[in-house]
Amino acid sequence: MFREALFDSKAAAFGYIPLAMAFGMLFQSLQIHWIFSILMSFFVYAGSAQFIAIPLLANHASLLSLSIATFLVNMRHLFYGLAFLDKFKFNKFLKGYLIFGLTDESYAIICAKKKYDNKWYEFYIVFFCHLYWVLGTVLGVILYKNLVGINFNFLFFSLVTLFAILTVDAFKFTRNYFALIVGVLSYFIFRYLEVKEYLFFSMLLSFIIIFIRTYKTENMGKKNVFG
């Protein structure tokens, strides 16, 4: 199981190590102690939320807006767990760790290899992904220390590429123009109204609109069925 997991997790290694390196370098550009980058990757372990935190921390955002942004960016996890309720058959401590390590990548790998259905396979996948993420951060911190004077700002763009790719994947999966347009429009509304927490409000507005629309179509469906 160890070997299969190591082999299957190599896709995550190619994705996580460079991205975590970019995170490590950018987080260091806030001029803080190196240990914080590693603690952040070890304990928070949420790629998008960690990147989004960088501009927020740089602007000394309140802890409340930091937690709201973290919650919204990670909200998709709520729906991953629903697929895994019958998995992770460990004692409380190990199960707690596996739930902690449920990321986009580990979720995708475990879903793709349903045939194994082995709890140790699940454990190793989660463990390796976490390891790659921390390792990449350490490499990023080391690289930052050794490349003094180089401006790493352009690395912020790796975040744009990540989100653009995730958008393409999500769109391919659902082909949902409505959700895409709602998201883009609500973002521009709050952005150009110059609302301070425009990230939060645009996500909240889109959630409400999509929820109401889903509620309406579900009810219409029921009416049609029952006459």
Partner: peptide, 20 residues
């Protein structure tokens, strides 16, 4: 809620792309 959850990723990821 499940149906909403399925539609959210494309919307949230597009917002995060614009924000970043």
């Amino acid at each position: 809620l499940r149906q909403t959850g399925k539609q959210l990723p494309v919307c949230l990821m597009a917002i995060l792309t614009l924000y970043s």
